[in-house]
Every structure is written in structure tokens, then in C-alpha cells.
Design a protein around this nucleic acid. Structure first.
Lengths: 256, 256
DNA sequence: GGCCGACATTCGACAATACCAAACATTTAG
DNA sequence: CTAAATGTTTGGTATTGTCGAATGTCGGCC
């Protein structure tokens, strides 16, 4: 979705979400800490925090505030309705088992590639949980898989909004080069992230669609020393493609 | 936390969260659908929805609104900071593997027992994902494990707020009986749910603490025909206790 | 294709309420 | 124990959320 501005926005909601984002960014904060970041008086911030706490969106521990678990209740619900999650979880588990690597279900949100689910195989990198985290779309395997299935104009929109910021030496920062790459991805149905976001980290992705609706992508990630040669270029891509086909079938015959 | 009312609440935030809850309850809704549930004019509801969408908390598909994925971003973050999740995930995975059943990490929120994580073993019941779902605390193994470690007055508070509603014939609905049961749980360190919430479903739980701080509980669930006899009363409880000890150690020596 | 009904969106005037500053209370540090 | 720092409450004021009506849009039906 584009950064569509509401015509008659409810300012209090804008401010409340700003505070929530801040609490996340700062990893918890006291009232005074927030004062510097948000253009509201101490008293007003207090009202906001107290109200958000009452609503379960914020939790107060001593005098520091943080995000409350009602957000998880809402978020968990939102994830459950994502068709990619419903259709793809099983396949993701299977793929993690087969390959031993880290597998994730990602969907486009806000012009970013967003984690719906992640499963670590036996040999997978130590991972912190990434649920809900939003990654840049131009330098991840999942993101490029998604872009490859989006209408061209939407891709331009996203780039206009987010740009093509550099993450590593390998990051694609040129719009034309990116479109070329997307064409290549479409041909084979596989996207690669060759240390484009993080040095030493590679990834492989496939887009998932249903009735021409783009649902998102499945992606696999691992360190360069394990994702290399034929395994990186052939074997794993083939396994991903198989899982993709399995999901396609599942999407077509939901009763199974 | 008790239903603490903010002294000077920001009404717009209260109303916005009310709308979010409604969207979840109704599993998505159009503007007119909401009109019947919320005491605001059509125009105002529209402003709310448009603002929430702009903030990523709501997504609009055609003319129906639903919860947006920014809630998952916030919720995922909130989960990651829960010590029970950080300390217990590995143990939960292990337990699911060992037993083949459904294992969950639950924490108290809002006087309810709330899912932070769930892992299904090989033979586990088909499960829909339950992330963030809030269960009643008096008729679940996890809930009673949690209650057993809470100060008595807090338990009274929760019961005062939530009551002891009937779920099945086995649900404990008497305050004194519940307190007796909690005493029993404290003695052995294990709680049982013997079809107290859902007919045919049993559960076993252990509380998890760190430095006398209650973090939540680990719980295992399965159908009566697999959770019975010694396995239900001895073997599985012992396995849970082992995992609990493992987590205790991990809590004590965080560097490991 | 065009009409109709249902619904979504915008707008301006009014009134509710979010805001600030300052007073008050509480906690923390020294 | 005192002072400083932070958290909480209050009342008056201006912002802004609210309503109702008008306008715009969509989809179905004849």
C-alpha cells in the first residue's frame, strides 16, 4: 500500500501510533525519555500512555513503558488470515526439515517484505525470532521474488517511496538493473540474494500466487559457506520450486 | 493487570481500539457493518478507519477493512522481549519433539493465559495457530500453573474481574475449590486440566519463574485418548519438570 | 447501457475533548 | 533527610473530533 494520507485524519490516532513506534524503537522508555522525541507536553504524553495501557497496547513495568501483548493478539489474528500463512506453513516446515536451513514466509506490506513465519532447520543459523519484522524489498530474496510478480507500476511506486538504499557492496541500487534482474527472476521463477543485504548471508526465494493473486514468497537463508556452488544455484532452488508446486496444488484444491 | 482506568483518557484511542477489536471479532467488516456496533456516525467511522489504515494498523481490501500487519510487527517485538519466550522456546521445541504433543508457552496478560509460542509435535492434534490468543485462566493447565505462583490477592483480583465461568462439566467454578487446587499444584509443581475447558481435551502445565518473578507457564495439551493413565499422571509431568529445571538453569546462567 | 439503490467519502459548523502550563505528588539520588 | 527529578492531576482554552447532509462511487438489475 502506498503512503495514502487520510483526508480527515484523527490526529490522536496518528500520535498514538507514533508513540507505539517510539516505544518499539527505543526498546521501552519512561515518560521523560519520550518527551524529547514527541512534540507533546509531559501531561499529554501521560494521558496517551495511560490510555494505551488501559487498552492493553502498552504495558507499564515500574516507570518504564513498553508494547503490550494485545498487539500480539491482534497481530496473531492478522497473520492467521493471511492466505500465504495458511497455505504455506506446512511447506515451510517441510523445507526447513529437508534442507536444515532457515525458511521464512514473507509477504509484501508497506513496500517491504514482512515475516509471517519462520522455521529453523537443524543446521540453521542461530536466529532470533523475526516475526513481523519488515525487511527492505530490493535486497532480499523474498523481496525480489515478490517484486517479480507485482505490476510494474507498483514496483515503481515502491521504489519511489523507499528508494534503493545501499546495504552491502552487492546491493542493487540502480532501477534499471533491478528491473533486469526481475525479468531474470520471472524466467526461472527463482530469486537470489547474494550478500545483497548482509555480508556473508545468501538467500533464495520463490513467489507464491493463487489465481493470479500474489500472496508473498517463501525464502531460504544461510551463510555463504553453506549456500554455495550447485547447492546454492541448483539443488535448493529445485527444492523450493517443489514446495511451491505443492502449495499451488493446495491452493487449487483447498479441501485437501 | 487490573482494568485500571486512566484518569484523563484519550477518548479517540479508546474508540480506535474498540474498532480494532471489532474488526477482529467480526473477522473483517465494511463501514456499514461497524455502524451498528459502534456509537459513531458514518463519517466519523470513516475517518477512524482511514487513519488506522494510514498507520498500518488496518488494511483495506476493496471495501472491507481488517487488521493490518503493523500489529504483527508490534506484537512480534513484544513477544521477543518476553523472558519466558527467550528462555523457554528451545525447551518447548524439545518437549514437543520428545512427546509428539502440542506444547505452548503461556503468560499472564489481562487476567488471562496468553499464547506466546506454540509448537506441534509429530502426533499433535491438528492445530490452528494460536499466537496471542487469550484463554481463561481458571480452566487451563497453563492458567492454573500461573495462578499457583501469583500472590493470593492477585488471584482474587483476577477472579473478581473475570469470574469463574463454566466451560465444561469439569470446570472449577467455586473459588474455595480453586484455591485448594492451587495448593495441590504448588505441592507438586504440576497443574492438570482434565477436560475443564474443552471436552475431550487434557493438559499439563508447569509454572516458570526467575528470581521469584513469575514468567508464565509451559503447557502440553492433547486428546484424552492419548493423555491418560500413567502417561498423563506421571511420565509427561516428569518430562515437563525436567524441561522446567533446564529453563531454571538457563535463567540462572544467562551466558550459557 | 443506463437507472437505481446501497454504500463510501467529503465538507462545514459546532461542540466535545485533547492540549498546555503549572501545581501537586511521588520516587530517586546524594 | 533533603533536594532534584520524574510522574500525575487539574482547569481553562483552542484544537480537532463529531455529526448530518451533500456528493461521489460502485455494483446489480432490468
Amino acid at each position: 500500500m502506498a503512503p495514502k494520507k487520510a483526508k480527515n485524519p484523527v490526529r490522536s490516532i496518528e500520535r498514538a501510533t507514533e508513540i507505539l513506534e517510539l516505544l518499539k524503537e527505543l526498546d521501552g522508555a519512561r515518560l521523560v525519555d519520550l518527551e524529547g522525541y514527541v512534540d507533546l507536553s509531559k501531561g499529554t504524553i501521560h494521558s496517551y500512555l495511560a490510555t494505551l495501557e488501559q487498552c492493553g497496547l502498552v504495558s507499564k513495568d515500574g516507570s518504564t513503558y513498553n508494547i503490550g501483548l494485545n498487539s500480539l493478539t491482534l497481530g496473531g489474528y492478522a497473520r492467521d488470515r493471511q492466505p500465504l500463512y495458511v497455505l504455506g506453513r506446512e511447506g515451510a516446515d517441510e523445507l526447513a526439515e529437508q534442507t536444515g536451513e532457515l525458511v521464512a514466509l514473507m509477504t509484501e506490506w508497506n513496500g517491504r517484505s514482512t515475516y509471517l513465519y519462520q522455521r529453523a532447520g537443524e543446521r540453521a543459523m542461530a536466529m532470533d525470532s523475526h516475526l513481523g519484522v519488515q525487511l527492505p524489498i530490493h535486497c532480499t530474496a523474498s523481496g525480489k521474488a515478490i517484486l517479480s510478480e507485482l505490476p510494474e507500476e507498483r514496483v515503481h511506486e515502491i521504489i519511489d517511496e523507499r528508494g534503493l538504499p545501499v546495504w552491502t557492496d552487492n546491493t542493487i541500487t540502480d532501477r534499471a538493473a533491478l528491473f533486469e534482474e526481475l525479468e531474470t527472476i520471472r524466467e526461472r521463477g527463482i530469486s537470489f540474494d547474494d550478500e545483497e543485504r548482509i555480508d556473508g548471508l545468501r538467500g533464495i526465494g520463490v513467489p507464491i500466487t493463487r489465481d493470479d493473486d500474489l500472496l508473498g514468497a517463501i525464502a531460504l537463508a544461510g551463510p555463504v559457506n553453506r549456500l554455495e556452488g550447485d547447492r546454492y544455484r541448483e539443488e535448493l532452488p529445485d527444492q523450493l520450486t517443489k514446495i511451491r508446486r505443492m502449495i499451488d496444488v493446495k491452493a487449487k484444491y483447498p479441501q485437501l
